[in-house]
Amino acid sequence: MRKPQVSVRLSRGSVRSGCPEIARLTLNPVLYHLSYKVVDWSGREGGKLRPAELVEIARARFPVLPLSWAVEGAIALLLTGGPAALESFETEPYDELPEQLRRFRVLSPAKKISLGRRWLRELRQVRDAR
């Protein structure tokens, strides 16, 4: 059995050529079949994700995976995990260590805990203030 191959025209164009970018996907046949519940592969039905939207979600959610794997993962999450499962955990570090981090980092383990407890106590006091 051959794996389904799908070409998806993405909404944004290639930076260099100015032409629309085409993503070519090779998908697990079972996931591809099940994906019809949530993805409008034909582009004619309403109320479902468009293929380009699916690719964007997959790229954001699994940025380090090959695109076809990322799309398969996004389909699985769309079918089973709900919107929260699609939230990306990708984030860049700060350009430089903020001053607050530098000051906090040098404290001893016990001092870090007692400072955290103090912040927590103060937060609770502020929250409970009437």
Partner: peptide, 14 residues
């Protein structure tokens, strides 16, 4: 978060 703080991040959690 308490472990994150131990690595040096000034975060707080209940």
């Amino acid at each position: 978060r308490w472990a994150v703080a131990q690595h040096g991040a000034p975060v707080v959690t209940a």
